[in-house]
Every structure is written in C-alpha cells, then in structure tokens.
Design a protein around this nucleic acid. Sequence first.
DNA 1: CTGAAAGCGCTTACAG
DNA 2: CTGAAAGCGCTTACAG
Lengths: 356, 356
Amino acid sequence: MARGKLSGPKGATSRDVARAANVSQALVSRAFSGNGRIAADTRQRILEAAAEIGWQPNALAASMVTGDAPLVAVITTRLTFEWRAQVLSHLLKSFQESDLKPLIFYAENDDEVDRLLADTITWRTRGVIVTAGVVNPQRADAILSRGQFFAALNRPGNHGHAFSVATDNRLGGAMAARLLHAEGRRRFAVIAGPDDSWASARRCEGFLAALDEAGADAVVWNNADMSIEAGKASARRFLDHSGNLRPDGVFSTNDAMALGFLDGLRDQGVTVGKDVSLIGYDNIAASSWTPYQLTTFEQPLDEMVARVLAYIAAHQEGKSLDFADSLSGTPCRLDADGVIYCAPKIVHRTTTRSHS
Amino acid sequence: MARGKLSGPKGATSRDVARAANVSQALVSRAFSGNGRIAADTRQRILEAAAEIGWQPNALAASMVTGDAPLVAVITTRLTFEWRAQVLSHLLKSFQESDLKPLIFYAENDDEVDRLLADTITWRTRGVIVTAGVVNPQRADAILSRGQFFAALNRPGNHGHAFSVATDNRLGGAMAARLLHAEGRRRFAVIAGPDDSWASARRCEGFLAALDEAGADAVVWNNADMSIEAGKASARRFLDHSGNLRPDGVFSTNDAMALGFLDGLRDQGVTVGKDVSLIGYDNIAASSWTPYQLTTFEQPLDEMVARVLAYIAAHQEGKSLDFADSLSGTPCRLDADGVIYCAPKIVHRTTTRSHS
DNA sequence: CTGAAAGCGCTTACAG
DNA sequence: CTGAAAGCGCTTACAG
C-alpha cells in the first residue's frame, strides 16, 4: 500500500548512541569526525552502536557549531533547453564528487533571479552559482561581503570580486565568420536571439567584427526566443529573398535555432552545405542526428565547471585563485571584463563545406 | 577583476540586529517569523535595522530548534535524456512554489543510488524523492521509520508505506497495441530497453498482453540503453527482414529509440506511417520536429508531480493521504502494487495512419 | 584516551 | 507587548 505514513520515533541523537556504547557524547562526535584522539576499539564500538540505532551526525547541527555547511546555492531555470540541462548535470556531478550539496533555487523567468539571490542568504551556503538570469552587482556585492563566494556561469559576474567563466562567445562568432569566409561565402546572415541575451549578443558581435575585418557584413535576424520555431521563422526570412540574393553563409547563435532553420529549409530546393553553409553553437545532441548533421561549436563545459569548482575550493581554503597560473597553458584567458573565457571547439559536420 | 575574494566580517546575528534596533533578541525572531505578539512599529524598526545590516534569519539555526527544515532530498542522475531533465525541471518548479528547498543527490549510475539514499539522512530533510535507480526496500524502511517521507517517481516504491506515482506504462503499451491493431497492422515488433528497466519492461508487457488478447504477438528487440543509437540498431534488424516479412507495427518504449529508428530507416525505401506504423513514448521535444513527427505518448508529468507534492504536504501535516478521495475523477488509479498509475495521453502525428 | 562544559544562532514557552 | 532563559544537537577547546 502506498497509503499513509509511519510517524516514526523522535530522531535519535548522538547522546542515544553514547548511551548505547557506554561512552560520552563527545566521543561519538570524534568517532564520526575523525577529529581528536579516540581508541580504535572505542571507535568501533560507537560505530556499531550508531549503525544499530540508525544514527548519523546531524549535518545541520554540526554546521551550527563549525559555522560552515558544505552547501552551495545554485540558481537555475527551466531545463527546456538541452544546454541548460547539460550545465546543471555537470555541476551536480562535480558537486557530488566534491561532497558539496547543491541547494537549488529555481527561477521561472529572469526577473525572479535577483529575488532568489536574496533568498539564498538565509541558508548560509558557502556561496552561490548563477546559471540563469542577469547578475545584479549590488546583490553580488552583498553576497561577497558576507564572505560567501559568487560565481556566474556563462554570464558576466558584474562585480570586481565575482568569479565568472564562459565560453569565448566572441571568439566562436569570429571563428564562424572566418570559416564561412574561407569557404568562399560572401553574403552573410546571423540568426540571433534577443539583444539582451548576453551570450547570443557576444557571439553575434564576434561574427560581425571578424566579417568586418574581412571587408564583409551581415544581416542580423533577431528572435525573441532562441527556439526551433525561431529558426523556422528565420528560414522563412531566408526564403523571402529570391535565389541569388539569399545569404550563403549563416551563423546561428545557438543550435536550436539552427536546427529549426534546417527544418524550415527542407523541401524548398535549398541544399545546406552546398547552396548555403550553416554553423550553430552548443553542439546539443540533436545536432549530430541524421537529419541535421550540423557544424557547430562545442562549449568546453568540463573545463568551465572544473574552473568553478577550483574557485570554490580556493575560496574554502581562504585563498584567492591565481588566475595567471591556473590559466597558462589552457585555452582560457582572463578578459578585462573580469570573465574567464574558454575557447569553444568547432565540430565539423555536413552543413559546411569544410568538414574535415 | 575576477581576482581574489573578499573575506567579509563574521556574519551578523539576530543579536546584532537586536542591538541596532534596541530591542531584545527574541523580538527580532518574532519580527521575522510572525509568531508571538509584537507591536507594528517595533517590528518595522527591526525590519529596517535588519535590512541595514543585511541580516536574515539563519535557516539552519532555526531548523535546529524547530526540528524541521523545509528541505527535500532528490535523487537524480545524468540529465542526458530529455525526459529526466523535464522531470527534474517540473519538480524544481513545484518546490520553489511550495517554499521547499531541494538538496540534490546525483548518482552517476543506478548502483550508487542506495548509497546516496543512506547519505541523505545526515541532512535531516523532510524526506526523499527518488527519480533514478532502484529502491532498496530496507533503505526505504529506514527512511520512513525516522518519520521522513519517501516518494518514488516513475518507479515502484518497493515498500508498503512508500509513495509511488508513475505513468500507466502497461496501459500505454496496451493502447499502442490496440491502435496499431485497429490500423490493420498484423506483424508487430517492440523496440525495448533492457529487461531491468522497469518502465520499458512494463510498457512492453502491456503491449504484448493487449496483442495477445487480439490473438497476435510481437518480436521484442531489447537494447542495452534506450538511445538514438539503439533505435538505429533496431532499424537494421528491421531491414534485415525482406520486404513482406518486416513488421508493420512497431512500438518503441521511449522516444529516443523511436527517433533513432526513424533515422535508421531514412533513404531505405520505407515510408513510415504507410509501410509501417511507429509509436514512441515520452513525447520529447524532438518528436514533434519536422523530420520526425512521431506519434507518441505524453506522460502526465504535471499530474504526477502535483501528486508527489500533495503527498509531501499531507506528510508535513501529519496526515495520511486519502487516495480513494484524491484519485476519484482523475485519470489515475491506485494499483495493488502500491503505485499510483496515471494514464498517458496519445499524441497523434504522422508515423501512424490514424492521426486525427 | 576520555569526559564535562561551553557555545553555535536561533525559537519558544514562561514571566512580567 | 517585551525580555530573560532554556534548549535544539552537535563540535571543540580544556582538563584530567
């Protein structure tokens, strides 16, 4: 039966275990923490008594006296975009490996993020990681000045002491531009998100800047969201142009829109990879599927997450990260805006000519 | 600069706020909790002092004395399958709305789940929700007997007092069988996961049982994982049969395999929806995309998550849920195995004939 | 190696 | 309406 509940006994405490093992309560603590001296056999006896009773130290109570719980607040949002789910998944895995416990704060939309950030502090976490929304500098300051860490993933930290790591969006955009130009493409278009999407805007900028260096420019199709449907809408705009006026080199600031673009072009007499080249961004799973085979950028997610965790570890030890050291020899750089940018990696498939 | 950290002052306490507002520390507590009498203007003064100092009650300390923190442990795993991400996303949203804080435990594989379940108790959460792996009945018992709740999502609770809600996998399988049979299909195949995948096995069973009632049977293609690649492998098995010996009604126990199956059949002279009908399960986003248009089952995720939250709320109030009441008039039923099964909904697209 | 005691930051009876 | 005090379940000096 899934019926009802068992209202168990009031939870056991270390005192109960002490009684059972015939020792002081302090020894029970030592048996579990490993701090302070304790005879091996006493410890054994205590562990057995605890197992018998089903007791484990109360982490909440412990944090009370140590003034520190291995808690990390994570701000996230709907996982409808695969990239978001990937980011969260990698973070969760890394936390688990580091014995850090993520406390998740879910924002239905970007506006809620600041409020959640405020709610965060009641939990006295070691710090917070923002993976959604825009960082309010004063909020970041409030968190940092309590001695908590503040990390932003794929967004600017907006604060001199915040930690921020992102893919090098501008570099990705520039790489896309150079690749398309080298293929001999000359009429360019960008399928972009809204201008207030930081990542999309930076990718677009990088694309346009590199094009400019090559003496070319591009039309930009902005979209309110960065979905499959937006990509299809962009395909309609593409098809609105008659044959030889159509762009022949298209960069989409994320994969979802690129896939929608491909869908919108099916059965329209346009051969992608031949008539027009297309490059996306994110390398989501579907981009490698048979009907798409999209050339795109893989974000160095492992690298970015590893850097966040190194920052957290350094913060815990009260040290500051020496970025000069930690970045040399890696594909990452610390920018003047305070963000660590990690180079994305192009994945060649069939929507460009130059598949290796 | 993203450099360094600010090692802030030792955190403020309610005592600091009390001092600033010139009241006792107890009043500060009352100002925030709303419990106990307090003059409106005193409260106002305290709130202002707290805002000035940047203090909020320490939830960890509060939980210490109340013996209850609004914490929920969630066991999850890699979010590589979109369905998993959807489940977690809905849970997180509902928790946020209920002021419940999810503490996430991440299992890299199913074997770790039992260990994580054990780790769970040190946090003294209200209970735990399992969304990955298999439930060990003794572990469930240990958790329930401490008075915590225990809920399993899309898996059996394996314990008389555990709460479990899932889609009606057998019903879905049976619906698929009846639909294909009604279309006039007569040679059936199931693209299934491993036999130890509870959901996949139940879907398969339901399909075979309904077929049996109609005097038909099916070949079952088991796959070690339920991925796109597994679906492609199944397509190869399909193509191994010569023309009129091929199955003409195929049921895949999840969408990923169904999509892979479609990909494996492209450019092979097989028209899905005409030569063969295909039905999936999950209704992931890609199933509605142009190249797929898969007929599939939508799982009643909102319904399932709402039921989990109702269970948590009832547990909190010390009441047991009256399922007889809560289920009447809904598309859900309490099965003899203690699981609440909610009916999936068919979504007709073009991989079957009978698209409405 | 072991134990008694103080104290982490709150909430909640209990007096006033 | 307000305050002093006890106590939640631990960890950690401090004695022994």
